[in-house]
Design a protein around this nucleic acid. Structure first.
Length: 470
RNA sequence: GGCGCCGUACCCAAGCGGCUAAGGGAGUGGAUUGCAAAUCCAUCAUUCAGCGGUUCGAGUCCGCUCGGCGCCUCCA
C-alpha cells in the first residue's frame, strides 16, 4: 500500500518512499509547556496521530519522536520580549521547572484522552542541552555563526538555500513591521543559537556553555534531538503550518549547515483550527482546552470525531454546534456498533466477503491519499449501512478502519442508560402500569409528564418500564 | 505592501475535467409503539458566491468582482 502525502517542500502530493525500506523516521514538533494545550494545539497532535496510524496501517514500522519544549522561549525570535516560561511561573507562583512539569503532565493526559498514540519517545529539551551545544559548536567550526551582543547567531547569508522550503524568496517580507528589529543581527533572517545575555529578566534555567552561562535559542532543540534519535537524514517532519516560515526554515538551515547533507525528505503541516472570531492562540488568551469541552458534557472522542470530519490541510472552524453534531454522529455510531456486537462477532479479516473487502479497500485508498479522513468516515458509514454485508464482516471491517480512526469502537456497548428508580417514582410507575392495563391512557400520559418534568424519560421495554435521563 | 487559502443544501464537510454532486448532524414522511424513547426504511443541492473565458464537456482550469480567513511576530 503506497501512502501519498502532501510535501510542503515542493507543494505537491508525492508517494512516500522511505529511506530504509519498511521503516519511517517521524519527528513531530511537540508542545511548549508553559500553559495548557488548547484544542487548536491538539488538532496538530491529532493530525500527527492519524499520519502515524496510517503509516502503520500501510505496514511501516514507525519510529515516532516528539519533543517537549520545556525551556523558556522569548516572546519573539530576537533578543526581546519576556520569557514565556518565566512569565507563567510568575503568574502562577511556581518555579519554572514546576511549571514545565505540571503542563507536561497535563499534555500527556490530554493526548491520552483523545486516544492519540504515544510517540516512541518524548524528548525533553532540557535533557538535551549538551546535544544542542555540540551542534552549535559544529556550526561555529564550520563558520555559520557570529557573536554579537553576547549571543551566538546563525548567519543565514552563509546558507544559500535559506528559506527554500518556505518559498521565502517569493515573498516581499515586511521586516520589522510588527516586531522590534534586533540590532545585533547582520541579516533579518538570522537567529540566535545560544543566549548568554538577555535584556530582560534573569533566566531561571541556565546552563554552562563554551560561550558562557546561558540558554539555547528555540530552533536548535528540534535539530539536535531529531538528529540524535533519527539520524542526520530522516523521513518525515511535521508540525503546524505556522512553523513553515520561521521555525522549520531555521531548523533546516542549521541542520543541513551542521551536517552537510539533506535533513528531511517530507515536510507535513496541518492547518489551524479557528474560532468564529479567528485564530485561537496561547498568547491571545481566552482559548478552549479539552477539559472545557469535557466540562460541557462532551467526550474527548467527540472532539476526535469532529477533527476527523475536516481535512488536516484545511482551516476548520470550531463551534459548539459542530461539536454537538459530531457528538450525535458518534452516539449513533456507538448504537450501530453496539447493536452489531450484540448480534454477532467480527469475522477473521481474511474471511471478509467481496463487498466488505471493497469497502475496506476504498477506505485504504482514501486514507493513503493524503489522509482524507472525511472520506474515510463516509466509507465507515457506507460499510455500516450496506445491507448486503453480514454483521460479522461489518464489525471486522469497522475495527480494521478504527486502527486509523482511533475511535475505540471495540469498546462500544449500547449503554443501559436506565437510572436507579427511586421509591417515589416506583409508585408512579406502578400506577401508570395499572392505568395502562385499564386503558386509562390519559392518566398514563399524565404520569409520563410528571416524571418528564423532573428530567427523566419513561421508556417501556419488554422487561418493564425504566427511566432514562433526558 | 507581499505570499497563500477558502466561499458546495438549514448547519458541518468531501469532491484526482466526464456515470444520477460523498458522508455526518438537523429536518420531513413512513414502519413500530396506546402515546413516547430507541431502532429501521424513505426523503432532503437540475446545482456548487457572482460574472466572463478555455473545453466536446467545469463545482473542478483561467481572468475579474464580491465576501471570509491565514501568514509575513512567539504560535499547532
Amino acid at each position: 500500500m503506497t501512502v501519498n502525502l502532501y510535501n510542503t517542500d515542493g507543494r505537491r502530493i508525492e508517494p512516500f518512499i522511505p529511506i530504509r525500506e519498511g521503516n519511517v523516521g517521524l519527528y513531530c514538533c511537540g508542545p511548549t509547556v508553559y500553559n495548557y494545550a488548547h484544542i487548536g494545539n491538539l488538532r496538530a497532535f491529532m493530525f500527527e496521530d492519524i499520519l502515524r496510524r496510517t503509516l502503520e496501517y500501510a505496514g511501516y514500522e514507525v519510529k515516532h519522536i516528539m519533543n517537549i519544549t520545556d525551556v523558556g522561549h522569548l516572546t519573539d525570535d530576537g533578543d526581546d520580549g519576556e520569557d514565556k516560561m518565566i512569565k507563567a511561573a510568575r503568574e502562577k507562583g511556581m518555579s519554572v521547572w514546576d511549571i514545565a512539569a505540571f503542563f507536561t503532565e497535563s499534555f500527556y493526559s490530554d493526548v491520552e484522552k483523545l486516544n492519540i498514540k504515544k510517540p516512541d519517545l518524548y524528548s525533553k529539551a532540557t535533557e538535551h542541552i549538551d546535544d544542542m551545544i555540540r551542534m552549535i559548536k559544529t556550526l561555529e567550526e564550520k563558520g555559520f555563526t557570529y557573536l554579537a551582543g553576547g549571543n551566538v547567531y546563525f548567519d543565514s547569508s552563509k546558507f544559500p538555500e535559506y528559506g527554500k522550503m518556505a518559498l521565502l524568496d517569493k515573498q516581499d517580507l515586511q521586516h520589522g513591521a510588527r516586531v522590534i528589529v534586533d540590532e545585533n543581527k547582520k541579516n533579518p533572517q538570522d537567529f540566535v543559537l545560544w543566549f548568554t545575555e538577555s535584556k530582560f529578566e534573569k533566566q531561571a534555567m541556565t546552563w554552562d556553555s563554551p560561550w558562557g552561562v546561558g540558554y539555547p535559542g528555540w530552533h536548535i532543540e528540534c535539530s539536535a534531538m531529531s538528529c540524535k534519535y533519527l539520524g542526520n537524514h530522516f523521513d518525515i517532519h511535521c508540525g503546524g503550518i505556522d512553523h513553515i516560515p520561521v521555525h522549520h526554515t531555521n531548523e533546516i538551515a542549521q541542520s543541513e549547515a551542521a551536517n552537510g547533507e539533506k535533513w528531511v525528505n517530507y515536510w507535513l503541516h496541518n492547518e489551524f483550527l479557528l474560532m468564529k472570531s479567528g485564530k485561537m492562540s496561547k498568547s491571545k488568551g481566552g482559548f478552549l482546552t479539552l477539559q472545557s469541552l469535557i466540562d460541557e458534557g462532551y467526550d474527548p472522542l467527540d472532539y476526535r470525531y469532529f477533527l476527523l470530519g475536516g481535512h488536516y490541510r484545511s482551516q476548520l472552524v470550531f463551534s459548539w454546534e459542530s461539536l454537538e453534531a459530531s457528538a450525535s454522529a458518534r452516539k449513533n455510531l456507538i448504537q450501530k456498533i453496539g447493536s452489531l456486537k450484540k448480534s454477532s462477532s467480527p469475522v477473521k479479516s481474511n474471511a471478509l466477503g467481496e463487498e466488505a473487502r471493497k469497502k475496506l479497500d476504498d477506505f485504504g485508498e482514501h486514507i493513503t491519499s493524503d489522509l482524507m479522513t472525511p472520506r474515510c468516515l463516509a466509507d465507515l458509514w457506507g460499510l455500516l449501512k450496506d445491507t448486503a454485508i453480514p454483521d460479522g464482516e461489518k464489525l471486522a471491517a469497522a475495527y480494521e478502519m478504527d486502527r486509523v480512526l482511533g475511535l475505540k469502537m471495540e469498546t462500544y456497548e449500547i449503554a443501559e442508560e436506565s437510572v436507579e428508580i427511586f421509591p417515589e417514582y416506583r409508585a408512579l410507575i406502578d400506577e401508570r402500569a395499572d392505568a395502562k392495563k385499564a386503558k386509562n391512557f390519559a392518566r398514563a400520559d399524565e404520569i409520563r409528564d410528571i416524571i418528564g418534568d423532573r428530567g427523566y424519560t419513561l421508556v417501556d421495554t419488554p422487561e418493564g418500564t425504566i427511566l432514562k435521563k433526558k
